[in-house]
């Protein structure tokens, strides 16, 4: 077990995990932000533009 830990530290795997982890947190985080902003904009649009209401909710 200690051997694996040493290996991880020696080969800097923890930094590699951190790098890819941060990347995916940022990408998925931005995606969530977009989805939420999109839902809000759709709801507003559907509320304010009567004819297009059905299309907004998907």
């Amino acid at each position: 077990m200690t051997g694996i830990v040493d290996d991880i530290v020696a080969s800097n795997w923890s930094f590699i995990y951190a790098a890819y982890g941060v990347t995916w947190v940022v990408i998925l985080g931005y995606l969530v932000r977009l989805v939420r902003a999109g839902a809000r904009a759709n709801a507003d649009y559907a509320r304010l533009v009567p004819g297009a209401g059905g299309e907004g909710a998907r």
Partner: peptide, 27 residues
């Protein structure tokens, strides 16, 4: 590819917001 999708989506949301604002003003 991811960036293009993000920019397009962000742009479309901004357009939608703007369209809703204009509709509200017109109403």
């Amino acid at each position: 590819f991811v960036m293009i999708f993000f920019i397009r989506k962000r742009y479309e949301i901004a357009r939608l917001e703007r369209a809703a604002e204009h509709a509200a003003e017109a109403a």
